[in-house]
């Protein structure tokens, strides 16, 4: 699964800590999600989409390898 968290963070001028605070998770969690090491729950994805005021699909996209 690809994500554009880093891009949207930069657009809003948020640090990882800023975003983490807004959705009540640790900075490490944001870091691992950005790096693609951890796939967040639907709830967390929706919270992030809400923070950036975009649809979830703008933040996260499924890849072919996710079907294997």
């Amino acid at each position: 699964m690809k994500n554009k968290l880093k891009v949207y963070r930069a657009m809003h001028d948020y640090t990882q800590q800023d975003l983490a605070d807004k959705i009540q998770v640790s900075r490490q969690t944001i870091n691992t999600i950005e790096k693609g090491k951890y796939v967040p729950s639907t709830l967390l994805a929706l919270k992030m989409a809400e923070v950036f005021q975009v649809p979830v699909l703008d933040l996260f996209q499924i890849e072919d390898s996710d079907w294997e």
């Binding site: 009540q24 998770v25 640790s26 490490q28 969690t29 691992t32 951890y38 967040p40 729950s41 967390l44």
Partner: peptide, 11 residues
């Protein structure tokens, strides 16, 4: 719980 308990720590 951790000081910042979230779903990653839970996992």
């Amino acid at each position: 719980k951790e000081s910042q308990e979230d779903e990653l720590i839970n996992a």
